[in-house]
Design a protein around this nucleic acid. Structure first.
Lengths: 121, 121
DNA sequence: ACAAGTACTATCATTTAGGATACTGTTGAA
DNA sequence: TTCAACAGTATCCTAAATGATAGTACTTGT
């Protein structure tokens, strides 16, 4: 997913389509959180990627960053009302998946065999 | 967006997050369509990419492909009931975007300056 | 004196999605 | 007879997303 055409559905999609964004929202819906706390919550994310996702979401108006200017640093992330207003959509997606779990085949891979090392001489 | 962790919300997201998938569903909600027709509908898509999106969506159970085995070829794509059942979610996303249009800043680019050609000597 | 926690950024590398272009074989229409 | 339409696939390439790893400056706890 890259550019969105002006289609409103795709606009919304673009805001939550980052690999970790749904989970960031999930944790921030519980309560505000600090950077390292989020990194512990989202097991496996690197600080670089977390930083990017947070910055994008902040630019998109989904969350706000409050820097207390202290030393050692203290920065808190929390959802804006715009961010919180996505909750019904996320819940709808969650319920849809749970309801249709059985009908969704597990697609693992393999479209065309393309640039596949095994295929080359 | 790449792998989904087993989180149902992300499962749903993964099914519709391809660059053209929402629009494919949009057109197929109207009526069944053939490959070249879709390519005309989705202005700008290449046949390779269209082929991929359709194949993924078919593997995901969102649409079905019917090959009439004729010559010249005739193949029709239509939504499955699973695919059609996504409509409320897409509408919810559309309405959310329309309702919040004014609050969503236009994010154009520029996170860190990273591997930027202008920055290099 | 040393380690750990704070919030990151820098640099480099890999992976993935998507695009450009050309091509297939057959048919019916101009 | 040459052309477009049909439904794609093959090959190559670029751009975007994400990951791995290391390091910043400062402070509190042991």
């Amino acid at each position: 997913m890259t550019k969105h055409s002006g289609c409103p559905t795709e606009t919304t999609l673009a805001l939550i389509a980052g690999k970790w964004k749904v989970m960031v929202i999930y944790w921030l819906l519980k309560e505000k959180r600090r950077f390292n706390q989020l990194q512990r919550d989202l097991t496996g994310i690197t600080p670089r990627t977390l930083g990017k996702q947070l910055k994008e979401m902040e630019q998109d108006g989904l969350l706000k960053r409050v820097d207390y200017g202290e030393i050692p640093p203290k920065v808190e992330y929390s959802l804006t009302s715009l961010g919180r207003s996505l909750q019904p959509i996320l819940i709808a997606m969650e319920e849809w998946a749970q309801l249709n779990m059985d009908k969704i085949p597990a697609r693992e891979n393999a479209l065309f065999i393309e640039d596949n090392p095994e295929t080359k001489t």
